[in-house]
Write a protein that binds this DNA or RNA. Sequence first.
RNA 1: GCGAAAGUGGCGGAAAUGGUAGACGCGCUGGAUUUAGGAUCCAGUCCUUCGCCGGGUGGGGGUUCGAGUCCCCCCUUUCGCACCA
Length: 829
Amino acid sequence: MANQGDEKKIVYDFRSIEEKWRKRWDESRIFQAPEKPDKKFYLLVMFAYPSGDIHMGHFRNYTLGDAVARFKMMNGYDVLHPFGWDAFGLPAENAAIKRGLHPNEWTLKNIQVSRDTLKKVGISFDWNREIASCLPDYYRWSQWIFLRMFEKGLAYRKQAKVNWCPTCNTVLANEQVINGLCERDDSPVEQRELEQWFLKITDYAERLNNSLDTMDGWPDSIRAIQKEWIGRSEGCEIVFKIDGSGEDLPIFTTRPDTVYGVTFMSIAPEAEILGKLSIPDEYKAAVDEYIEKAKRKTEVERAAGEDKDGVFTGCYAINPFDGSKIQLWVADYVLAGYGTGVVMAVPAHDQRDFEFARKYDIPIKVVIKTKDGVVLNSDKMTEAYTEYGEMVNSGEFDGTPGNKAIPETIKYTEKKGIGKAQINYRLRDWLISRQRYWGTPIPVIHCPKCGAVPVPDKDLPVILPEVENYLPKGRSPLADVPEFINVSCPTCGGDAKRDADTMDTFICSSWYFLRYLDPRNESEVFSKDAAKAWLPIDQYIGGAEHAVGHLIYFRFFTKFLKDIGLLDVEEPAARLYNHGMVNDEKGHKMSKTRGNVVSPIGLIENYGGDIARMAMFFKAPPNVPIDWTDDLVINMAKFVGNKFFPLVNNYDSDTKVDLKYYFNKDELTIDEFRMYVRLNQTIKQITHDVELFQFNTVIAALMKFLNEFKPEQLNQNLVNYSVLKLIQLIAPVAPCLAEEMWESCGQGYSVFQTDWPVFDPDAIVADTITVAVQVNGKLRGEIEVDSEADQETILTEAKSNDKVKTHLEGKSIVKEIYIKGRLVNLVVK
RNA sequence: GCGAAAGUGGCGGAAAUGGUAGACGCGCUGGAUUUAGGAUCCAGUCCUUCGCCGGGUGGGGGUUCGAGUCCCCCCUUUCGCACCA
């Protein structure tokens, strides 16, 4: 740890240097994006939740984005690199309650503190475009988008069984329930029957699913997670009839080919169809009791039941294929929300149905032959046969081969009008209303006569009122604010009440990237021209934990806004990069309760922001989690202080170097030319690595070059040329340092407005090259040859190498392989 | 159970497209310098060996002149989904 009082240890005066350049950037507005870019690059980092000061995770994420932004600037792009605050929501509210503050006060204070820190870090954000989702001029447009969805029937109210967190005192979206527990506080989530607001994201399930196939700028892992979450499933709807009443009893199945094997059906306890059954008296009590019991269980309890159980209703259905009578059961393993809430059970060919049938002595009927053409004996089966195969015991379908069985049965249902091909999704509609204070008010008025009436656009925003008591108590605190709640109906003028709920904060983050494009627009959510100019996001950087939340929601919003004509793009972000976490030295997550938080501010004050970020970059690629240790930064400070920064001492600012043109190579000695080659290899390497965000090897390449660079042995021209190139190459990674060095070489302001170095292709191929020589694939020697030498010369040379010769003795060469400029392999026997 | 990613020295991690495995750094070991500490410099550091040779990228097979990289099987770890009919 550098001792602040000990001047000898300060390797360069990072404090004044960093302050100087931050100020300079700010004054010259170098990071301000133009309205109309020529060559655009929209770089988006996930905006921050202001729950305190920013931490090492933010620091890592945002310095990564910063390096990319600066690199793109140097490659001639107009870079849009905005920032803002995801300021509404439960965490801010909970934190504020704990401290006895108002959420607004708490949030705004945190924003200020965090903003100051980020400015101190010198991130290249365009602060002119800063937004905060808790401010009326932002959430006004969240309300506006909500109303557009309402108009299209995509925002709707529904009485439904919903997830309720008893600790947060609010409902939660499916995406916020992890293993039946609240993602915030791990409380077991209860099911409550409530009327709530939903967004019909399911209308977009197919498009959300299909676009994933073309999104090759996204990590495969995220795409796979989203695919699974959307859960597309191809199958068939088949309409059975209730025996007696003849009422329809539709089911969804992916295995219509097993329909002749149906021996019972399972109905979810919550399924509405149950009301249509006339359950015989002798079964009624047991069924009612089972349903009551099932409803009291939590999701986890229901899922945990290893043994599937259920109860027979005494009712039957008719199989439309063969007219057979099917027992109807109620079973709580059936999900009311998927398909129709009714499952056709085929015990011979579905493992769960098999176990259920064995338990309750229900017949098992084999209707699919095995691969070997065997018809299994149902009495002797120990498990279901779930493979596809030829149909058997299936009436007119007998003999239909496995690959045709499903299409043929589907075709039949359509011909007979007893069903149809159908695609189901696991994705559910998004529950967005919250019974909490700190969020965007839902812009709807409930009128006893007119029902749910949208607030007219001209009355937006619906301002979140200041309240005394915002503690959660199971219904929205806004419900107890008469001035807010009591209004007249916009349609009929009669007494009406505002909706008291607020929106899920993920609404705010579903479109923030659009507001950045036109953040001060008072008449529109954003201008279409701005959207056309900047979209899609060229690079999005953020955590993988948002895979099934935010990263689906913002895709959904984009598609919706395209459909109403505001956007041209189908997808918001062309490329996505997931950064890794920063843990403490023992690999534990940094947290205030653990007391192991390393502050970016402390690092900046003791070592400088450039050293801190270089240390972080050097440790590992940015997508790999790292364990922070102070020696990272200590060692980086040594490298910069001893090796890198002193480079400018070797620069002679009287010697003019023209960086735009080829260096005069003819003047160089052989050793100097070798160094020139190494420089160009380094340029090539670093450019390649920066493009892949491999900043660890960027710094390694710089170190390696400096290990070989001996300025005192080289002519001054070459030294100057090399130093300038190196400063540019390292600028994205160490911006203040680079500016300072650039200036002290007499190059003026700013290094970020110079062109990124391009390697000299002539210098990549040297006059002589080293070729590796293998015998039977094993390295046996190296030869130095003229780079122009032909294959024959090289092979002759290789065979005459002393080391190689010993391995050739007494053997005959059966094959000679030459890989140009790299290696020779002699195959001997 | 299903899906995805990944297994390389004491450690973090390098090896673009199959072509010199272990770059760069940490740590460690010797040495130099220094009143001392810190710092700095030089040398060494995958295993085995004085050296050559040999072995080596989780394990086992395969393709190839040549495999960390491609294919098959297995093991382990991490992450995501977990009754989806």
